[in-house]
């Protein structure tokens, strides 16, 4: 268990013995997982296993939940993200997030992409223009929208909206992108587009993806972690997990025998 395939490379995020509670109910038990730089890690497991909760711990999205409490260390570089040394806005710039349902703001495509930069006080038009082009190209959306940047983002297709959210996430130059079931509301073609995009983004970013779609985890990730009832059951190279997992529970889950 807990084979660390990239033990040599320094991880971007290193979670150590993370416990998480919703009030009195413990949702995560002693999860230790580190995420290698510029690799894709998939978190899989049945509903309620804690994979989304764990993902949301990584940029403190659970801060907003009443009664939520986290124990253990989550290091980003060498700073514990839950310590006072970490500014939460800076954390979320460095660890961006893309959600299950695309959530563009009711603004133009252009304004959506640079939203984070505007908040950070960037005003220079040339800088913003460049960020828009760079981010939309990075999200494989530029060619489709370059002639209508001022149109509302809400007029885009679902697949385009999701890629816009990815562009918005990368505009602030994060190190890590968290993806919480980014394709579950997309049709197969848009899903394929986002999956290809994940393959391109891993050149520059560390990606952690939660997915219910096992085949998707198999296709897009380098490493896979299987969580069950708040515990990390198995972590390893994706090809190992899908060809010969070590743990019987993992095998039963990925072969559809439970969950």
């Amino acid at each position: 268990m807990n084979e660390q395939p990239n033990a040599g490379a320094a991880p971007v995020i290193d979670a150590q013995k993370v416990n998480f509670y919703y009030g009195n109910s413990q949702a995560l038990h002693h999860i230790s997982l580190s995420f290698p730089r510029r690799q894709v890690t998939a978190l899989i497991g049945p509903s309620g296993c804690g994979k989304s909760t764990f993902l949301r711990c990584l940029n403190r999205m659970n801060d907003l939940v009443d009664g939520a409490r986290v124990e253990g260390k989550i290091l980003l570089g060498d700073i514990d993200i839950n310590s006072s040394a970490m500014d939460v806005i800076e954390l979320r710039r460095r660890v961006g997030m893309v959600f299950q349902k695309s959530n563009p703001f009711p603004k133009s495509i252009y304004e959506n992409v640079i939203y984070g930069l505007r908040i950070a006080g960037v005003r220079d038009k040339a800088t913003l223009d460049e960020a828009v082009e760079h981010s939309l190209k990075g999200a494989a959306l530029w060619d489709e929208v370059k002639d209508r940047l001022q149109e509302s983002a809400l007029g885009m297709s679902g697949g385009q909206q999701q890629r816009l959210c990815i562009a918005r996430a990368i505009a602030v130059n994060p190190e890590v992108i968290l993806m919480d079931e980014p394709c579950s509301a997309l049709d197969p073609k848009s899903t394929a587009r986002v999956e290809e995009l994940i393959g391109e983004l891993r050149q520059d970013y560390t990606i952690i993806i939660v997915t219910h779609n096992m085949q998707q985890a198999a296709r897009v990730s380098d490493h896979t972690a299987f969580l069950y009832e708040g515990l990390l059951v198995e972590y390893g190279l994706t090809k190992k997990i899908f060809m010969k997992p070590k743990n019987k529970k993992t095998e039963d889950y990925i072969t559809g025998r439970f969950g």
């Binding site: 060809m243 997992p245 095998e251 072969t255």
Partner: peptide, 9 residues
Amino acid sequence: HQPVAIDLR
């Protein structure tokens, strides 16, 4: 069925 793990093997 795109089987994996033991089913694939």
